[in-house]
Write a protein that binds this DNA or RNA. Structure first.
Length: 206
DNA sequence: CCTGCGATTTGCT
DNA sequence: GCAAATCGCAGGC
């Protein structure tokens, strides 16, 4: 694979279609988060296109890392390009991508996908979901659809069964809005989504 | 369409 | 002890 010249892909930190590894994630979480919109995420061959994420940084009252290094947060302080999966409300596994160099603590919460691959597998796992719009339009829903659990915490994202790829072609326009479901630092506009996508979670960022 | 509430477990005070 | 980066269902409009 030829390395791409400076210019194209410069804002993404990756060439079109390339697998995203530690170099992509070893940057400011505020640069990585919008660059993930339009990327493709598969787990064991099941998944789709990322249409919504949120950024969480070290000095961020809404981030788990705000309290410092603990048993739970040590993955966020570890090497970039790994999964940080935690249990939300005692029920849902939420998937994050660890960003910034080891020793820093930042992560991107994956909030919604546009399903593209193995849709019937996702539908069978999601049970009550009626339409494709409801399969992955929320952080707890997409982990259920992809079969991601706490067992995947600290996994590398550039190795099977994960497959995380830069967009092949054009990138969607990205819009920002306040983050969802938090009670601290609620005003920070660190939610990023694909403009106009019907696959984003609620409330709609419009 | 919208709002309200219970489920269920863990991590940190 | 309690709050939590959520979800699905019930009920009202």
């Amino acid at each position: 694979m030829p390395r791409r010249a400076v210019g194209e892909g410069a804002t993404t930190g990756s060439a079109p279609g390339a697998r995203l590894g530690a170099d992509f994630f070893s940057r400011s979480v505020h640069d990585v988060a919008p660059d993930l919109i339009g990327c493709r995420l598969l787990y064991d061959g099941v998944g789709g296109t990322i249409v919504e994420v949120e950024a969480y940084e070290r000095e961020d009252p809404a981030s788990h890392s705000f309290v410092g290094l603990t048993e739970r947060t040590k993955v966020m302080f570890g090497p970039p390009g790994r999964a940080y999966v935690y249990l939300s409300y005692g029920i849902h596994s939420l998937l994050n991508f660890v960003c910034e160099p080891e020793g820093d603590a930042a992560a991107v919460l994956i909030r919604a996908l546009e399903p593209t691959t193995e849709i019937e597998t996702m539908r069978s796992r999601r049970g009550k979901a009626r339409t494709d719009l409801e399969l992955c339009n929320g952080p707890g829903k997409l982990t259920e659809a992809l079969g991601i659990t706490l067992a995947q915490n600290a996994s590398r994202l550039d190795r099977a069964p994960f497959e995380l790829l830069a967009p092949d072609g054009e990138r969607p326009e990205v819009v920002t809005s306040p983050r969802v479901g938090i009670t601290k630092a609620v005003e920070r506009p660190w939610r990023f989504s694909a403009a106009g996508s019907p696959y984003v979670s609620r409330p709609r960022p419009d």
